[in-house]
Amino acid sequence: MRAKTKTIPLLRDKTFAIYAVLGYIVLLFVLLVSIAPLIWVLLSSFKTNNEILSSAFSLPHSPSLVGYRIASDTANIPMRFLTSLTVASSTTVVSVFIYSMAAYVLARCEFKLRNAIFGLLICSLLIPSNAMIQPIYSTIKALGLYDTKFALILVYTGFAMAMCLFLMKSYFQSIPKELEEAATIEGAGFFTVFWKVILPISKPALASSAILTFINSWNELLYALLLTSKEVNRTLPLTMKYFTSMFSFNFTPMFAALVMCIAPTILIYVLLQEQIMESMVAGSVKG
């Protein structure tokens, strides 16, 4: 918190007033485009189908929880929540762990094929997951993981690869080499340097990776549908699909399911974000 006063000496600047005005205009736009959809979804989850369709802005005539009731009757929401949480959080922990190791080596060590390996791994960013259904299914099937949570964790960890590597590698690269050298002189081994020196000051990158991995795995729909078949392995966002199928047209529970599905993510995001930002104040080492 002490650092806070340190970062805003600019406030005393005259031009800052202009900057602030322009800045707030942008932020206002940001707020508008971000919050408005959420509010609309929230309102709609209390309206009837007819109200949703007939008027965009109207408030629900007689707000009701019917949508939420139908949504939770259709699927076992608590169980699905736990499934989603298991899958998304395991994916996040595994991804951050294994990709931070790889990113560190790729950022810091000189060895043959370094750029080739990085280039290869980064290519994963370019492979459209929708087009890989068939081979991934046969892999998962061959491993005997079809219809398990492990299958989803494995696949989502794979999907998180490029993003994590990118974020962490570019962060590791910007850490001054002197830090490691100092630790090495004091006798720290390779792993100790990574674990005790590099990781603690890389929290911003680890956190960004963690947040994005968590959100992406939480929201994934296609593989969640294709790689599972039992109710216990179905994730929470799939609940929405019950209400968007072709012959069905029940918007109220669909929006209710959507609210139930995104509320935990928003909560987790806000909590994590606060933690990260707090811990980051001490970590300003660059420049």
């Binding site: 009757d73 259709t74 076992n76 736990l82 959080s89 949570k149 216990v232």
Partner: peptide, 19 residues
């Protein structure tokens, strides 16, 4: 929580969607 979920999942074989 996740572990609980896993364990819960294993026992809830007879769980059904009630709708």
């Amino acid at each position: 929580l996740s572990l609980v979920a896993c364990a819960g999942g294993q026992n809830s074989g007879t769980e059904q969607n009630a709708g």
